[in-house]
Amino acid sequence: MATLEIRDLHVSVEADNAQQRQILAGVNLTIKAGETHAIMGPNGSGKSTLAYSIAGHPKYTVTSGQVLLDGEDVLAMSVDERARAGVFLAMQYPVEVPGVTVSNFLRSAATAVRGEAPALRHWVKEQKEAMAKLEMDPAFANRNVNEGFSGGEKKRHEILQLELLKPKIAILDETDSGLDIDALRVVSEGVNRVHAAGETATLLITHYTRILRYIQPDFVHVFVKGRIVEEGGKELADELEANGYEKYVGVAV
């Protein structure tokens, strides 16, 4: 069973004046396959920094702490090595890659993560079925990656990758943002299918509780000023829905 351990993680980012500014101030979190953890917090609390630091974005510098995937040192790995080890980040703002079709991109990613090119015939079927489950038009596969995609299309495309790559740890960064209610349902169902397979640990990063109507978290963590200040079950999300983050913003200093 896959386990991701985040231990006392401190992360800083280069500010405009070339000084390092600390964003994460000691994050501790353990996530196991089959579990869904929601990280909830106000804007600017460092939720996305946590996501991108685990994925290895070069903008962020880990100043201390550890991230271990089944005991392996994730922070020592390059971005692509992390992905091949089983880390997946569904991005809030996935980038356009002009001239590269979705189907080429997906096949390249699947080849890299699986360690060998999937047999073409099986792959075509697999991709088609995964797209159908996310209610995506087959013509979508011939479009260039994220070019001219609507908000909903971008998120469906991210979850399509999640379903095809079957990671050990899925980090979903604000996947609910910019989605209408239909798209939110479709995308959430995709996340739930991956969860139901039991092989993936899910870290759901969100500002709002809306997505939690569709995805049931086992644990809810309140994230304020770069660390977790409260933990609980689903009921914690309900409380946040009712009262907001005000209660926590004061105590986190």
Binding site: P58, D80, A112
Partner: peptide, 13 residues
């Protein structure tokens, strides 16, 4: 950012 996106899907640099 394009390179990061592709690499975050396991694709070597």
């Amino acid at each position: 950012e394009q390179l990061f996106y592709l690499q975050s899907r396991g694709i070597a640099p």
